[in-house]
Design a protein around this nucleic acid. Structure first.
Lengths: 239, 239
DNA sequence: AGGCGTCTGTTCGCTAGCACACATAGAACA
DNA sequence: TGTTCTATGTGTGCTAGCGAACAGACGCCT
């Protein structure tokens, strides 16, 4: 599932950690390690205790609500701008979401104990993560309205942009089936929306490989929530 | 807008405060006052700085997302189980939501400065509010899926139950128009759903006055999210 | 080369909720 | 007593997305 990475940690790649003073970064560095996350790996299921946290460096993870009477819905997409294991910041040791690896890559890992210690020792870290939580709250409220009001095509365009931001490349792997789960629609709905975007030469895809061709055009096709969510982050956590 | 209430504070009415040790309650009591909130009063608009916090005692408030390209959507309903001004807990002094009084009644008010001081002084308060935040995060994620998947009638039933829980009575004031805004649907949709519920003798309403007749029946008509949200609260903040 | 599993495309009928428009009815006020 | 405002009810078409089922296409494996 996880394989220890040999490469230099380079914490600076994670935007939450990058902005910390040197001293606090050293604290993080001394109390964690770098792992490579493989696509499809499930990090947590609803109700699981949180044994560790992850700061994605060049990996992307999806958090989805548990499938109860419905298929599920992605409520958060986390890349190098965020972290996995947020409940620990608030003193809660269990998650209610399913977390899995959307795009493979390295992440900085810390055990629960060491992370909580670090929170107590580093005011800068604690303050920054608190602000990150506020961003997440705003974003999940935004998500509720976006999911309620916007058409599948616009939501798909937004997702692709968000994914591209986090994947740091114009290509990534995701099937229609998977997107349907994330967006909370039928696979057919994704196929329709995706082929519409492809016909407009905004993206190209083929058996799970999506390529963004025209980022500006995709922005125009996406709902305003795309920029709004990013603006929230920048406002509270610095451009 | 606000009128100073003469009655004894009785902080114990707010569930967040009630569970605190005596010493911490005295701290709260010494640093705030009791006000009566009038129905319709707007406490904050998106982007407003937070000058004070409120712990509802017997009043109900709605937090809605700002109407951008759509009509808006209620993302939180707060009564004596919660508080207004949560961003301050995370060190953020501005809200992104519109807050207004849904049901009139008394609330405990604290200035931003005194509240932040109290947070620093009382670990018990800080810990409890942190857990409350985690509940809110879970609930807004739940809201996104509920809003996405469930029918208007079920969502309306849920809202009525939640409102009743917080209003502490089987009658409260709310028009179809207002409900439409809160649920993010057309007024006509509310009228249809409400008359269906009325026909089944679960509720009665007349020009803005809604009466819950059959709470058990209403629960059956509501989506599972009703119990789920309450369970989250109880799990982290005690029954 | 053949076979199988995965991914994508398409079709058909159906429904919840939409937009718009108009009709009634209670309440408030002159 | 009539006027006006607010709250509720209805009706007519329209559309996005649903459920279910099937068909082709690509890639991998033996």
């Amino acid at each position: 599932m996880l394989s220890k990475s040999a490469k230099n940690p380079a914490l600076a790649i994670n935007r939450l950690l990058a902005a910390l003073p040197d001293q606090d970064q050293r604290l993080i560095q001394a109390n964690g390690d770098c792992v490579d996350l493989l696509r499809g790996t499930v990090i947590s299921e609803p109700g699981d205790p949180l044994h560790e946290v992850y700061f994605p460096m060049d990996t992307v993870l999806s958090l989805v609500t548990p499938p109860a009477d419905h298929a599920g819905l992605e409520v958060r997409l986390v890349g190098n701008e965020g972290m996995i294991g947020t409940p620990l910041i608030l003193g809660v040791e269990v998650t209610r979401l399913r977390t899995f690896v959307q795009g493979a890559g390295p992440a900085w890992r810390m055990s629960r104990e060491r992370f909580c210690d670090a929170l107590l020792q580093s005011d800068a870290l604690h303050r920054r993560l608190n602000r990150y939580l506020e961003v997440l709250m705003n974003q999940s409220e935004l998500l509720a309205t976006c999911t309620r009001f916007h058409l599948v095509e616009a939501r798909l365009a937004r997702w692709l942009l968000m994914s591209q931001d986090r994947a740091h490349g114009d290509r990534f792997h995701v099937t229609h089936e998977c997107l349907a789960l994330l967006l909370g629609v039928r696979r057919v709905g994704v196929t329709k929306a995706a082929s519409a975007l492809q016909e407009r030469h905004l993206i190209r895809y083929r058996r799970g490989e999506v390529t963004v061709l025209d980022r500006a055009g995709l922005k125009a096709a996406a709902c305003g929530c795309y920029g709004a969510a990013e603006a929230m982050y920048d406002r509270l956590l610095g451009g």
